[in-house]
Structure formats: C-alpha cells, structure tokens
C-alpha cells in the first residue's frame, strides 16, 4: 500500500509540475490542482498508513492512527480549494482583459 501511495503522489506531482510549466493558463491551473492533490495525499501519509484504528482515545482500542495529519490535511484542502477558485477567476479575467489565454498575455500560438 505504501508503494502504491508513493507512486500516486509521484505521478501526480510530476503531472502537476509539467502542466504548471505550460504556456496557457488552463493547463497551469490544472497543474496547480494536481500539485495540491499530491501534497494533500503526502500530508495524509505523513501520519503513516494505518488501517482500522481509531484516531481518538477509546477503551477498546489496540492502537491508534495519528489524528494530526488528518487535521492538517483538512486545513490544506480548504486553503487549496479557495486558492484554486481564486486562480480560475483570475485566469478568466486575464483571458477577458488580455484577449488571450497565454500566461504572458501574448497572442498567436
């Protein structure tokens, strides 16, 4: 399971970096979204992968999963969600005002 998760994070990060370096705003926004997915999974995995254990104290528990990364990841999801919404609006505004969806506002290809 660890290897699979690591692979997913790696592929998502690679796709995110590649797309973020593109010259049109839409792939750049997609790239940022992929990167935020990758980092959310990464943060989640930092509490180690544990199956079927409670995060809060309980009398019958035989072990626990770390609750803190889950709290961190919630915060990170909310922030990245807000940022994505903002950057999409900004990209649309740039498309309208600059007449092109090139990241430098240039026309042509």
């Amino acid at each position: 399971m660890e290897a699979l998760l690591a692979l997913i994070i790696g592929v998502l990060t690679a796709c995110g970096v590649y797309l973020a370096l593109r010259r049109r705003t839409f792939p750049v926004v997609l790239g940022l979204t992929f990167l935020s997915y990758a980092v959310n999974l990464f943060l989640f995995a930092m509490g180690r992968l544990v199956v079927g254990r409670p995060p809060v104290l309980s009398a019958t528990a035989t072990g626990y999963t770390d609750p803190l990364p889950q709290a961190l990841v919630l915060t990170a999801i909310v922030i990245s969600f807000a940022m994505t919404a903002f950057v999409i609006m900004l990209a649309l505004k740039a498309r309208a005002e600059l007449g092109s969806d090139h990241v430098d506002g240039e026309g042509g290809r």
Binding site: L35, V103, D104, G105
Partner: peptide
C-alpha cells in the same frame, strides 16, 4: 492582471512546496 497572474501562480507553487516541507518534518 497579467502581473497578478504571475504573482498568484508563483506563490501557489511556493505554498505547495511549503506543505511538502512541513509534511516531511512532521
């Protein structure tokens, strides 16, 4: 708007890197 787009995208990439670093430390 053009300068703002660059500013926002660069800082979002910075934030992602920040989270990776914080996650590793934790």
């Amino acid at each position: 708007t053009r300068a703002g787009l660059h500013y926002v995208v660069v800082n979002l990439l910075g934030s992602t890197l920040f989270l990776f670093a914080v996650g590793t430390l934790y």
